[in-house]
Write a protein that binds this DNA or RNA. Structure first.
Length: 725
DNA sequence: TCCATTGACGTTTTT
DNA sequence: CGTCAATGGA
C-alpha cells in the first residue's frame, strides 16, 4: 500500500514522531509546530501501515473540541469511518467506562453527573447541615479541597491530617459529601476519573480486558494531565501498551488546577526506552515573534529545552504601546483594529487577549462605540443556564428520583408552598434515616410529619413527578423534554422576572426542547448501553455547549490568555501587560513556581500571533476603585528590545480625558486650565510630575499628577503650588 | 415570599 | 469600581 501521503507533507522530526518508533514516544511539540497533525498522522500510520486494529486504539484529549477535531481530521486522512476508534476526553472516556461497568464500579445504573454548580450547592447544604459557619467554611473552598484530593486520587480515609483542625474538618465534609453522592448515584467530574482509576485497581478482570484490547494509547496536551489521569493511563498501559504522548512543558498553564508538568518527566522514567522527538519548526508566527517568545521563555528554569524557529521572514516588529490609562489602552487597540479593517482585513483575524476576565469590559465598550462586532469567549454556556438546568433537573428526577441535587433544585420551583421549613423537615428525616430527599419526602408524608397544608403540597409534588414518569415512559426524548417543561409549569417561575429576562429564558427552554428533539444517540453511547435519555443528560453535563455562537460572524475575538491556548490569529493584542496584573499579583506573592507559569502564559499568548503582535500596558489603571500607578510587566523587559517598537502616543490627540469629556460644563473650560494634560509640572515637595487629569471646577478643581518619584496623587489646585516646567 | 439594600471581595477554567 | 450573595423589612 502506498503510504507516502502519510509522510510526504511532514518535516523530518514530524516523520520521526509518526513513523520512527515501535515503542513509546514523547513528542515535545512547540507552539504552532503541527502537533495535531502529528497525532492524526500517527493514528493513521498505526492503522494503515502497522495494520493495527482500530479497536485497539485509544486517543485522549482534554476538551471536546480537540477530540472532535481529531476525529474529523483522522476521518479525512483515512477515508474510512472513525466509529470504532476510541477518541475522547479523559472525562468522556471515564464516563463511558463507568456506564459499561456500573456494577463493578459500585454505581447505580441510573447514576448522574454532577456539574460544579450542583457540587457547590450540595456542599453548601452539607456545611449548613453540619452546623458549620459558612463564613469560615465556604462551600467554594470545600469544593476546591475535595476536587484537589480527588485529583490526587485520595479518599477521605487516606488523607493524613494528624489532627490538623482545618484539614480534618474538610476531610469530614468530603466524607459527608461522598455519602450523599453515593446514596443518590451522583458523580462529580473529578469522581469520574477517580472511579475509573479505582475500577482498574479493584477489578483486575476489567483492567486485563482493556489492557489486552487497548494496546495503543495516544495522549494530547500531556503537560496538562493531573496525578489521577497519569495513574489511570499508566495502569492501562501496563507492560505491553504502547504510549504516544504529545505535549509542551512550556505551555503548561494549568498547574493551579492540579496539572502536573512533572508527568512528562515521570513518563520518561516510568516507561522503558521512550523515544523523544522535538518539534521546533513553527508554521505559524513570524521570526520576530518567535525570537521574542524564545527569549522570554528562556528565563524559566528546568525546561526540557526547545527553541522555535521558522523558515519564514522576520516580519514586522512587535509593537509596544504605553497607554496612559486603561481607557487609552482600549482606545488604542480599537483604533488599530479599525485601521486593520480599513485595509480590508477581517475582524475575526484580530484577538484581544488579557489576563483577567474583568478586563474585557472596557474593550467591549470601545468596540461597541466603534460599531465593530466582537465576541467574548468564556461566558455562560447553554447547558449551564438556570432555566436549562431547572428543566433538566425535572428530567433527571424522572429518571432517578434519588438525585438530591435535582430534587433540591426544583422541589419548590415554581413555588408550590414547599418552603424552607418544610424542606428542612425533609432534610432532617433524610439525615436521620440515611435516605435520599425523595425517599425522605415520602417517609414524611406517610408518617404524617407535616402540617396538613405542607403535607399535601409535598405529596402533590411527589404525585406530579410520579405522574409524569408514568405518563411519559414511552414518549420520545423530545416529547419528554417538552412535557416536563409544560407540566412542571416552570414558566410560572420566570414570569416574575423582568420581561426581557423572562423572554430569553422561555426562548432557551424552547431551544432545549428542540435540542432534545433533534438529539441522536451517538454510536459510542449506544455501544456503551446508554439510553437516549441517559446519553442526553450526560452530554448536557460533559459538554455544556459552545461558549457562544459559532465564529461564522466576522467578529473581533476577546478572551483570556488561558482560553486562547491552541488558537491562532493574524493579529494579536496582549493587553494589560503590567506587573501586578500580568504577572498577576498573587503569583508574585508566593514563590511556588507561580511566576514561571505566568511566564509560560505570556509565551502562549505571544505565540498565538501569526503576523502582528501588539503589546500594551497602562501607566495608570483603576483597580478596585482606586487608581494604581503601574510598572510595565517584567516580561516586556525579558524580550529583546530590538524586537520591540515603541509606539509613542501623539500628545495632542491621545489624552483620553480630552477626548472623552470635553469638559464644557465646568467653570474651567479646557483652555482655562493652567496646565495641559501631559504637561510636566514641578511641586515644591513631590518634585516633577506629569499632569494626568483635572476634576471639578472653580476653587474645588483638583488635579491628578503622576509624580516621577512620589507616584500618582490628587491635589487641590488652589493649594498645590505648581510650577510649569 | 419578594425585593431592595448592604456588605464582602476581588486570577486563570474544562470536564 | 462592580459584582454577587446574604440579609432584612414590607
Amino acid at each position: 500500500m502506498d503510504v507516502s501521503h502519510l509522510l510526504d507533507e511532514l518535516n523530518e522530526p514530524q516523520r520521526e514522531a509518526v513513523a520512527g518508533s515501535d515503542g513509546h514516544v514523547l513528542v515535545l511539540a512547540g507552539a504552532g509546530s503541527g502537533k495535531t497533525r502529528v497525532l492524526v498522522h500517527r493514528l493513521a500510520w498505526l492503522i494503515q501501515v502497522e495494520h493495527v486494529s482500530p479497536l485497539s486504539v485509544l486517543a485522549v484529549t482534554f476538551t471536546n473540541k480537540a477530540a472532535g477535531e481529531m476525529r474529523e481530521r483522522t476521518g479525512k486522512l483515512l477515508q474510512v469511518s472513525t466509529r470504532p476508534l476510541w477518541i475522547g476526553t479523559f472525562h468522556g472516556i471515564a464516563h463511558r467506562l463507568l456506564r459499561m461497568h456500573w456494577k463493578e464500579a459500585a454505581l447505580p445504573e441510573t447514576f448522574q453527573i454532577l456539574d460544579s454548580e450542583d457540587q457547590q450547592r450540595l456542599l453548601r447544604r452539607i456545611i449548613r447541615e453540619e452546623g458549620m459557619d459558612e463564613a469560615h467554611w465556604p462551600a467554594r473552598q470545600a469544593q476546591w479541597f475535595i476536587n484537589a484530593r480527588k485529583d490526587e486520587g485520595e479518599r477521605p480515609q487516606n488523607i493524613e491530617h494528624f489532627d490538623h483542625p482545618v484539614t480534618s474538618t474538610w476531610v469530614h465534609v468530603y466524607q459527608r459529601y461522598q455519602d450523599y453522592c453515593n446514596r443518590g448515584g451522583l458523580v462529580d467530574f473529578a469522581e469520574l476519573l477517580l472511579r475509573a482509576h479505582e475500577l482498574w485497581l479493584e477489578q483486575p478482570t476489567v483492567l486485563d480486558h482493556y489492557r489486552k484490547r487497548l494496546q495503543h494509547l495516544l495522549i494530547d496536551e500531556f503537560q496538562d494531565t493531573n496525578a489521577i489521569q497519569y495513574a489511570w493511563l499508566r495502569m492501562l498501559a501496563g507492560d505491553s501498551g504502547r504510549v504516544f504522548v504529545v505535549g509542551d512543558d512550556d505551555q503548561s498553564i494549568y498547574g493551579w488546577r492540579g496539572a502536573k508538568v512533572e508527568n512528562v518527566q515521570h513518563f520518561l522514567n516510568d516507561f522503558p526506552d521512550v523515544r523523544t522527538v522535538r518539534l521546533e519548526q513553527n508554521y505559524r508566527s513570524t521570526g520576530n515573534i518567535l525570537d521574542a517568545a524564545n527569549a522570554l521563555i528562556a528565563h524559566n528554569e528546568g525546561r526540557m529545552g526547545k527553541k522555535l524557529w521558522t523558515a519564514d521572514p522576520a516580519g514586522k516588529p512587535i509593537q509596544l504601546y504605553a497607554a496612559f490609562n486603561e481607557q487609552d489602552e482600549a482606545r488604542f487597540v480599537v483604533e488599530q483594529i479599525d485601521q486593520w479593517l480599513d485595509e480590508g482585513r477581517r475582524a475575526d483575524d484580530c484577538a484581544i487577549l488579557y489576563r483577567t476576565t474583568a478586563q474585557s469590559r472596557l474593550f467591549e465598550e470601545y468596540l461597541l462605540r466603534a460599531s465593530i462586532p466582537y465576541r467574548v469567549y468564556g461566558g455562560q454556556r447553554f447547558f449551564e443556564r438556570t432555566e436549562v438546568k431547572d428543566a433538566l433537573a425535572y428530567l433527571r428526577l424522572l429518571h432517578n428520583p434519588n438525585d438530591d441535587a435535582a430534587m433540591e433544585r426544583v422541589i419548590n420551583k415554581p413555588v408550590r408552598a414547599i418552603g424552607e421549613k418544610t424542606i428542612s423537615l425533609i432534610r432532617i428525616q433524610a439525615r436521620e434515616s440515611n435516605l435520599t430527599l425523595w425517599q425522605a419526602a415520602g417517609e414524611c408524608v406517610s408518617q404524617g410529619i407535616f402540617a396538613t397544608r405542607a403535607g399535601s403540597a409535598v405529596s402533590g409534588f411527589i404525585k406530579l413527578i410520579e405522574g409524569m414518569r408514568e405518563r411519559m415512559q414511552d414518549w420520545t426524548l423530545g416529547n419528554q423534554m417538552q412535557g416536563v417543561i409544560d407540566e412542571s409549569n416552570l414558566v410560572a417561575h420566570y414570569e416574575k422576572e423582568p420581561r426581557e429576562r423572562m423572554e430569553t429564558r422561555i426562548e432557551n427552554l424552547r431551544e432545549l426542547a428542540t435540542a432534545a428533539d433533534a438529539f441522536i444517540l451517538p454510536h459510542e453511547d449506544a455501544d456503551a448501553g446508554l439510553t437516549e435519555l441517559q446519553s442526553f443528560l450526560s452530554h448536557a453535563a460533559l459538554e455544556a455547549g459552545e461558549t457562544q455562537g459559532e465564529s461564522w460572524d466576522d467578529c473581533v475575538q476577546l478572551m483570556t490568555l488561558h482560553s486562547a491556548k491552541g488558537l491562532e490569529f493574524p493579529m494579536v493584542f496582549l493587553a494589560g501587560m503590567e506587573d501586578g496584573l500580568f504577572p498577576h499579583q498573587r503569583s508574585l506573592e508566593d514563590s511556588g513556581g507561580r511566576l514561571e507559569e505566568e511566564r509560560r502564559l505570556c509565551y502562549v499568548g505571544m505565540t498565538r500571533a501569526r503576523e502582528q503582535l501588539f503589546i500594551s500596558y497602562a501607566e495608570i489603571r483603576r483597580m478596585f476603585g482606586s487608581q494604581n500607578h503601574c510598572r510595565p510587566s517584567r516580561f516586556i523587559g525579558e524580550m529583546p528590545s530590538e524586537l520591540l517598537q515603541e509606539i509613542r502616543p501623539r500628545m495632542a490627540t491621545s489624552r483620553p480625558y480630552v477626548a472623552a469629556q470635553p469638559v464644557s460644563s465646568a467653570g474651567f473650560s479646557g483652555q482655562d486650565w493652567p496646565f495641559q494634560l501631559g504637561q510636566v509640572v514641578l511641586h515644591p515637595k513631590f518634585g516633577e510630575g506629569t499632569v494626568l487629569a483635572f476634576e471639578g471646577s472653580g476653587e474645588h478643581t483638583r488635579v491628578h499628577i503622576n509624580f516621577h518619584d512620589a507616584g500618582a496623587k490628587w491635589l487641590v489646585m488652589a493649594y498645590a503650588k505648581l510650577q510649569a516646567r
